Amino acid sequence: MNPILKEAFETEMHHAKESYRSQDWEKSFLHLERAHILGQRDAVPHTINHWWMLKVGVRNKDHTEVLGQIVRIAVAGIGSILGRAPMGNTGGANVGILTPMPIPEDLKKIFIRAGLPAG
């Protein structure tokens, strides 16, 4: 994983886990969505991110999210390896697996600093 993306991904995951421990599921999921945008090009971070999304879905008793994340965990690594992860996709069950989405401006700057396409 690109070191600049890795640092940003790990920061978002750190915030997500802190919020998870505080039982702030909404804030945790927001950080997981941001981490997903940053990490979806790499199989391991991508899959770890979906595991945490699944955990939040379980805590929220959100059956749609749980099922959606189980499916995503099964295909996340493959999509990353094949380069099929859609830019900007936030990774939640509320969006299509292959749906590209706009990248938030602050995350675009991270991609640009990393010398990677940002949209």
Rank of each mutant, 00 (worst) to 15 (best):
P45V: 09
E26S: 13
R72E: 08
P102S: 11
K17G: 00
L116G: 06
I110G: 03
I73E: 05
Q69S: 07
S28N: 02
E12P: 01
I78N: 11
K61C: 10
R34Y: 05
D42N: 13
V75E: 04
W25I: 04
A85G: 15
A16C: 08
H31Y: 12
A93T: 02
R84Q: 11
R113D: 12
E12D: 09
Q69M: 09
R59C: 07
S22I: 03
W52T: 03
Q69V: 10
W25L: 03
R21K: 11
F111N: 00
A114P: 02
A76R: 00
N2W: 06
V44H: 15
G77F: 07
N2R: 06
V66C: 07
E26D: 11
G115M: 07
I103A: 04
R72I: 04
A76V: 09
D24G: 01
G115C: 06
S80R: 01
F9V: 03
I73D: 04
R34E: 08
S80M: 04
I48P: 01
G77C: 14
E33V: 08
G88P: 05
A35P: 01
H46N: 14
E33L: 08
A85Q: 09
K61V: 08
A93W: 04
N2A: 13
S28T: 05
K61N: 15
S80G: 15
G91T: 03
T90K: 12
G57F: 00
G88N: 07
M87S: 14
V44N: 13
G68H: 03
P104V: 08
K27L: 14
L98I: 14
G91R: 00
V95I: 14
L5R: 03
K61D: 11
L38F: 06
A93D: 02
R72L: 08
I97G: 02
K109M: 15
I78D: 11
R21D: 15
